[in-house]
Computed example of a mutant assay.
Amino acid sequence: MIMLTHTLFLNRPEGEIRIEIRIHKPAPKDGCWACAFEIDWPEETKTMSGAGVDALQALVVSLQMIGVQIYTSSYHHDGALRAYEGQEGYGFPVSRNVRDMLIGVDKIYL
């Protein structure tokens, strides 16, 4: 069950492309909790899950995994990706080893 969605925008010569992110409700799986998500990159949909000892931990891990996927993407590196009009950042936390890559409001608040 999809719990929430978020949209990023990729600037291309032919126009802006919407990149949808879907986060599913955490659910018990194999003795722990898992929180699945999808990112609709232009070349493929990336499907992954974060896991934890409870639903909250699984959700937080998934949000961080999404942030890492965004910040390590070639689209971020090229400066062609945005989430908000007139504002840098994507709205997702990242794990400690990627925090030096944060930009804009993410750098301030996440």
Rank of each mutant, 00 (worst) to 15 (best):
L4D: 01
L4N: 10
H6S: 14
H6D: 09
L8F: 11
F9N: 01
L10F: 11
L10C: 09
P13N: 08
P13V: 03
E14Q: 14
E14C: 05
G15A: 10
E16V: 14
I17Y: 10
I17V: 15
R18A: 13
I19P: 06
I19T: 01
I19E: 06
I19A: 08
E20L: 14
E20W: 01
I21R: 05
H24V: 00
H24A: 11
P26N: 13
A27S: 12
A27G: 01
P28Y: 04
K29M: 14
K29P: 00
K29C: 07
G31L: 03
G31E: 05
W33I: 01
W33G: 01
C35H: 04
A36L: 02
F37H: 03
E38R: 09
I39T: 03
D40Y: 01
P42G: 12
E43C: 05
T45V: 12
K46L: 10
K46H: 07
K46S: 11
K46E: 04
K46D: 06
T47N: 01
M48G: 00
S49T: 11
A51L: 05
V53T: 12
V53N: 12
A55W: 01
Q57R: 11
A58D: 05
V60Q: 15
V61R: 09
L63A: 09
Q64G: 13
M65G: 05
G67R: 09
Q69H: 14
Y71D: 09
S74Q: 14
H76R: 06
H77Q: 15
H77S: 15
G79R: 04
G79H: 07
A80T: 14
R82Y: 15
A83D: 03
Y84G: 03
Q87K: 13
E88G: 13
G91E: 06
F92L: 02
P93M: 12
P93A: 14
V94R: 08
S95A: 11
R96P: 04
R96H: 14
R96I: 02
V98C: 07
R99Q: 15
R99E: 15
R99L: 08
M101A: 13
M101W: 08
G104E: 08
V105E: 14
V105F: 11
V105W: 06
D106K: 11
D106T: 10
K107Y: 03
K107L: 08
Y109S: 10
L110P: 00
